Simulated assay, not measured.
Amino acid sequence: MAQAYTQETEQHGGDAPEPTGSRARRLLGRLRRDRGIWRRGLVLAAIAVLLTLVMIFHAEIPNRVGNLGSLLETFLPWLGLLIPILLVLGLVRRSASAVLSLVLPVAVWLNLFGGLMFSDKSGGGGDLTVVTHNVNADNPDPGETAKDVAASDADVVALEELKSGAVQTYVRALEGTYRYHTIQGTVGLWSKYPLSGTKPVDIKLGWTRAMRTVVDAPGGRVAVYVAHLPSVRVKFNAGFTAGQRDDSADALGAAIANEPQDKVILLGDLNGTMNDRSLAPVTSQLRSAQGAAGDGFGFSWPASFPMARIDQIMVRGVTPVSAWTMPRTGSDHLPVAASVKL
């Protein structure tokens, strides 16, 4: 019987599983014999190098034509999606050049955004929690949105895009939680602590979409700015049109530069990300709470599928300890929040 079994095994030897080491050696041998493995996919490799250069030198891409540089910087993290696409194409082409070249864009993307994507910098111990929310002038249920924001139990709440007909709805919904409030044009601020020195801030629009006040918090007095910079547009024949937004950013930056208080918090919809060079008059003076103490990118717009963080909480002279986005309301933006140490 043993002899019969041996003969049968020899006759059907091909049915026995091949050792993993043998398969690997055979695959390596096949690759060594494939003389085109390095020559194929050179175009894909060139695209990977170009992607790397765009991410490294994005600040050098000019804004003269359609504000292309600012448009790219607004969605800069999403360039990372091209990497897995290039990887799949490289594997399909069986191109070592295409696959290995992806080390470059991967390294640069991780250097730029790895800290946001893969680390949670939030901590505890903040003594002031702030929220900002563009409530959307066309919000179908402003009362419910106000209740959602109040449920955060933040100490200070800033709202932008307040429609005149809905202002009293927000006032009534928030007055039970916040003793103090001020409304300047289409922006407003609600606080559990006294306010003083309140005034509109001229951001060169002809009507009020920015304000400044001082919150007398238990941890110290802090100047709080609320701003809603003009919207930007992407037009087929004009590119990324943001001239009015950029002029307002210059004016807001000048106001913050002249702020006498050491502690400053800016809350609002800036219609731009921290990467957008056109917001440099503001971003050069303040740091992002999300960047300093957030978990992930914290995208806030559009609410249905957030792709960019254009709603900002920025600080000077205070320490962010945590930052996060809140659940969706009736607006097309997500509320964003942060806790800071004064």
Rank of each mutant, 00 (worst) to 15 (best):
F297L: 04
L270I: 03
P230E: 14
R245F: 08
K235M: 00
A254G: 15
M307K: 12
M326V: 02
V282K: 03
V282T: 12
S331I: 01
G219V: 08
S248V: 09
V201I: 14
V224W: 13
H228F: 01
V315W: 06
A251P: 07
L229R: 13
A238K: 02
K204N: 15
V222G: 12
S231G: 07
G220Y: 10
V201G: 06
S322Y: 02
P260C: 12
P230G: 09
Y225D: 15
I203N: 07
N271W: 07
T273N: 10
R233Y: 04
A303D: 09
D202T: 11
V321Y: 12
K235Q: 14
Q285W: 06
R212C: 02
K199F: 05
R212M: 08
G239P: 13
N237K: 08
D250A: 05
G291M: 13
G268D: 12
M307T: 15
P327L: 06
K263C: 02
A242W: 00
P260L: 10
G298A: 07
R212G: 01
I313G: 01
S288R: 00
W207V: 03
L205K: 13
F236Q: 11
R209S: 15
P281H: 04
M307D: 07
P230Y: 00
S248G: 12
A254Y: 01
S322M: 05
G330D: 12
G220T: 07
V214N: 00
V201H: 14
V215Q: 06
S288L: 01
A323P: 11
T325C: 03
G239K: 09
V282F: 14
T241K: 05
I313T: 00
G219T: 06
G298N: 08
A303N: 01
S304L: 06
G296I: 03
A257D: 12
D216T: 07
V222I: 15
N271S: 10
S231M: 05
L286Y: 05
A255H: 04
A210V: 05
G272T: 01
Q312N: 12
A249M: 14
T325N: 10
R221I: 10
A255F: 06
S300W: 08
D269C: 04
R309L: 05
D250L: 06
Y225M: 13
D247R: 14
P320A: 04
R233P: 00
N275S: 09
D250I: 03
T208K: 11
V215K: 10
L267V: 07
A280I: 04
T213R: 03
S322Q: 09
R212P: 03
V215L: 13
F240M: 07
R233K: 10
R287L: 03
D246N: 08
G317V: 11
D262H: 15
T213Y: 06
R328Q: 15
I256R: 04
M211W: 01
G220W: 10
G253P: 10
P281N: 04
S231P: 00
Q312A: 08
L267R: 09
G317P: 10
D276W: 03
R212L: 11
A251L: 06
S300N: 02
V234W: 14
V226R: 06
D250N: 01
A289L: 02
V315N: 11
P302S: 09
M307E: 06
T208P: 00
T283A: 09
N271M: 10
P200V: 09
V315D: 03
V318Q: 05
T198R: 02
G296S: 03
A210H: 08
F240G: 08
A251S: 13
S278E: 05
I313F: 00
